[in-house]
Amino acid sequence: MKKTIPRPPRAKASRLQRANYKWIYLFLLPTVIVFAMFYVIPIAQVFVTSFTQWDGFNAPVFNGVRNYVNLFSSHSFLTALRNLFLWGLVAVFLHVGFGTLVAFVLFQRPRGWKFTRAVFMIPNVISAAAWAMIYRFIFNDDFGVLNGIIRIFDPDFSVQWFYKSPWAFWAVTFTWLFYAVIVTLIVLGDLLNIPTELTEAARIDGATGWQLIRCIQLPLCRGAIGTSIICSLTARISMYEQIALTTAGGPDYQTMSLPILLVNAITDYRYGYANAVGVLMFLIGLAVLYVVNRAFRMDESDY
């Protein structure tokens, strides 16, 4: 932004910009309206009532930071935080990593790349709930496919993947770990957007395949990777169906998540407590947005 431009044109540009303001704000209007209709009240309500005791119907009663104190002295909440941290690591390194790997593989256009890309999308066409249900059957000890296959080699094999420590954590992780097509699509989009001249120039300078990836393609995809990390991390924060329909947080709270706690609190008509969980989910998400945005310098245009 620190270009040195001669004075007169700059003044002109700024007049042009001011003339544009009308259009700029007009263009923003629909989004602002949608935001006002659907988000202002929920966000305010979540924050305000998190400092109250509220059954969701009768008037809320202010009780200070009681809900937060209760949360931070709750075993299940602390375990849920630990799980979120672990899942976050898995999401950033394995989930986004795998999606990016597939994007780079597909970018080389090996045989069948179009087919692979098309098929990879299918799991995302299905709802998380349906997918969780399918996995409950696949990981079933008795008539699940996985153990069915393992028993071909070891007839006595028997593990309840979703209900036995330490497998449950990984069984839940598996239901989303490799389904990274969104990452692949976003990264592939950026890869395809890299001007061919740039790649050609690098080739002429003698860059080999790996160097090309490391020095040109990967850095130019950083926006896409950052977006993917944000998507993936926020999805971890709000992970509900995959757990509610499989382990419900067990065994021994090893797969407990914040949304499960939130919904459990609503079951008990403790909306204030539930919204305190909501506020913390919100704040964690905000921290993620901030850190990732900074780390990947996502606000800067490359071209």
């Binding site: 923003l28 989004t31 602002v32 935001f35 209709m37 659907f38 988000y39 009240i41 929920p42 966000i43 309500q45 979540v46 969701g56 926020t234 924060i237 709000s238 509900y240 949304p259 939130l262 919904v263 609503i266 539930a274 919204n275 969980v277 909501g278 989910m281 919100f282 998400g285 905000l286 947005l289």
Partner: peptide
């Protein structure tokens, strides 16, 4: 505005129930 729009991602679905239902 950009920050406001992106934080909508962080509002837990179950917390939106009541305002949206009444809307």
């Amino acid at each position: 505005l950009f920050i406001l729009f992106t934080i909508t991602l962080l509002v837990p679905g179950h917390s939106k129930t009541q305002p949206i239902f009444s809307l």
